[in-house]
Design a binder for these strands. Sequence first.
RNA 1: GGGUUGUUAGCUCAGUUGGUUCAGAGCAUCUGCCUUACAAGCAGAGGGUCGGCGGUUCGAAUCCGUCACAACCCACCA
Length: 902
Amino acid sequence: MNTLATKYDPHAVEDKWYEYWEQHELFKSVPDEREPYTIVIPPPNVTGVLHMGHMLNNTIQDILVRRARMEGKNALWVPGTDHASIATEAKVVKRLAEQGIKKRDLTREEFLKHAWAWTHEHGGVILQQLRKLGASCDWSRTAFTMDEVRSESVLRVFVDLYDKGYIYRGLRMVNWDPKAQTALSNEEVIYREEKSHLYYLKYYVEGLERLDDEEALRAQGNIIHHDERGYYAVVATTRPETIMGDTAMCINPKDPKNQWLHGRRVIVPLVGRVINVIEDRYVDIEFGTGCLKVTPAHDTNDYMLGKTHNLETIDIFNADATISEQSPLYVGMDRMACRKQIVVDLQQAGLMEKVEDYENKVGYSERNSDTAVEPRLCMQWFLKMKHFAELALPAVMNDELKFHPAKYKSTYKVWLEGIQDWCISRQLWWGHRIPAYFLPTRAGEEERFVVALTEAEALAKARQLPGFEQVQASDLRRDEDALDTWFSSWLWPISLFNGINDPGNAELTYYYPTSDLVTAPDIIFFWVARMIMAGYEYMGDMPFRNVYFTGIVRDKLGRKMSKSLGNSPDPLELIDRFGADGVRMGLMLAAPAGNDILYDDALCEQGRNFCNKIWNAFRLVKGWQVSDDAVQPAHSRVAVEWFDNVLRATMAEVKDHFSKFRLNDALMALYRLFWEDFSAWYLEIVKPGYQQPIDRATLNATLDYFDLLLRLLHPFMPFITEELWQHIAERGEGESIMHATIPAPQAADAALLAAMAQAKEVVAGVRSVRKSKNIAPRDLVTLQVVGEMNELCHDVIVKLAGLDSIDVVDAKDATAASFIVGTTEFAVPLKGNVDIAAERAKLEADLKYAEGFLASVEKKLANERFVANAPEAVVAGERKKQADAQSRIATLRAALAALDNQ
RNA sequence: GGGUUGUUAGCUCAGUUGGUUCAGAGCAUCUGCCUUACAAGCAGAGGGUCGGCGGUUCGAAUCCGUCACAACCCACCA
């Protein structure tokens, strides 16, 4: 009679419904009178592929947006991709290299042609993959950070911020990625602890043949080095290859060890350059020998020293970190090779005092993780951040804009309070080209430029400058640099609605501020904080009301998923194995807000099994024959009323979980509702006997419940719920569970829930007796109640426990196995098959526990201070416990006495 | 070096302002079942001195102190 397979097959379902949703434009949103609910996607790298982090992140977004849609809001999820300037350019460069083409042999235009080709070839793959996951994005709005609208927005903002005086150009020490050959922002540098060496180098003191007062100096604490070649200072360094750039040696003026070096000059080893010994309190007396070599061109601190002490700056590196012509030695050699060589040379020349093992932190490029970042002095564009930090801090601190979990507030605060100017220029081609135009100047003159949206405007601006009235377009030279990718991402919630180019437009007014942002905590500075800044600068309002920070997906051993470890499963393969619903559920079960999630295939299996459970419950209900003549049995009537209240209670719980972004708790509540309450209890109660029809009232109620359960589950498991929802009743073309409503929860009848909870315990008690006594399920037994019981669920117990009757008795049968629920004793007569010793042992154990419990309660009540200080309700609660315990003890004693009378 | 968070059952986690039998859930485990929706299943069962120590309180998984361990973030010690 059932034509449906016993196992749910996602393959037959998922693509079908996704196509249906798209075909009927069910993801589409246009402004109307309803309350908007908006999410903007964290745009993935346009040429990237879906990984587990995306799966988690986008599943959460889809759950939120689907739920909001079903709550009657006008829900919009805007998709898009990011051009990922440095990452994409690196990939294109690599591909060109494989074809034997060097980037520098190409013109900008030729290179961009290749980059766009690459983008079109790989671009959008990830958006197709999101469809497999079930993402309900409004695809008609798909944006790209480098499309026309977004590009214009970026340039406009650059011009605006320049005009406002927040953007400046300056010569600064920046983080340089020698592989990509571009500057990076501070946030793009990742520091890693590394095993290295501390080299102690000899810097001979110039022209010092004899120290007259050597003994006196030593007595004062000076540590003086001397060998056959003369007196020397010892400098500890981890980077001996930078000595060619040394322009001073520095000591702390208060360092007793090095007083003898005061005012002297020392000779840089191998190089032979004579440099001054300078003094600055910056130097740590305790570290190494207290002598610091100063290389202003290649270290941030040394650069600062160089500035205060007016030192010469010798840049010994080329852009690719090979040794430059400025160096007297090793020209053309790579920095790492140079380090090895110079160590050997120093040792051979007797200029190396010693070498120690050492651990230090080395900065790496976030995108070229094998490339150590080199501090480099160069001209870059910066954004002053103080103003933006002040804009962005208050709303988060006073919870107008909420972080979930809230612990990230302090991270955010600390960063904003210590914020440094943002280096926004990149020496890359793939990105938004900086709209600055340089004017022709003579050699040695200070550079002059204008900033403007278009070349025509730039020309007009230039001609207003004194001395440039006659300048021609062909004289203007546009800046070669591109902008940091995040300089476009930070506008995303605004630029998606064209809010920069067309301020105040209707869409923007309707959808902004967006509702929730779902993202990983590692981009809180890169992206989240900066979006908040841009939001207040350009909209005067927050970009989103809530930020939900997801955890990081790890393997079950807690290791971060990575390509090199090979511990990251392919998401599409997982979807193929477990179904999209199964995978979504597996991820959500393991993902409490803010906690890292330890991924295990077993979680997806659990999700898949749940799909199967739903599927089979549906098969059961669909297989029932209905008869209008059948009368609704009492147990079904109770079950229908009870389940209605369970639904109400659970819906309230789920709503509460959603309001706190506790999606895994919401899902778990629904999981248990469906599996335990609905399948194991409700359906078992109302299930008609073999080949018996079901009555109309019960069937209708059951179908209504099933429908509502599907709606509640739909945000988590969109495919199977749509499939079954379409089959559970007649639906019109274009109708979808996606737009069915999830009603607001109503108050539940607590007394009925409690009565059923007790009935469940009684049923479990009988089943336990059955199991221990090996009584087959089909053999009916009698249940005796010693005293009174709640009659509400009488028929339910009869049916589920397999009883012929429930007898209220004064004393139970001599040969019965008994159990206690609450304060009532229940017994199942066993027709002489009882193990009296075992019964006695069980009852005595129960009694002992109850007596102990009573004792603790009475001790509490005997304590005057407790009675005097505790709230009345608590004391009353203890009195109730006391009474219950006493009554239970009486029941147990009576039961034991009955046993003795055998 | 600074900051944040965590430590509850074999695993992953709940436990809201201290107080209902508060020590929970899911998974895993054990036992018995191919019972006419589902073995990707059904029924039953076991399992934790809430990281250690000390304190506050009538009462502490919950508040305070301290120690241990772990994770993450930030920071210019060569």
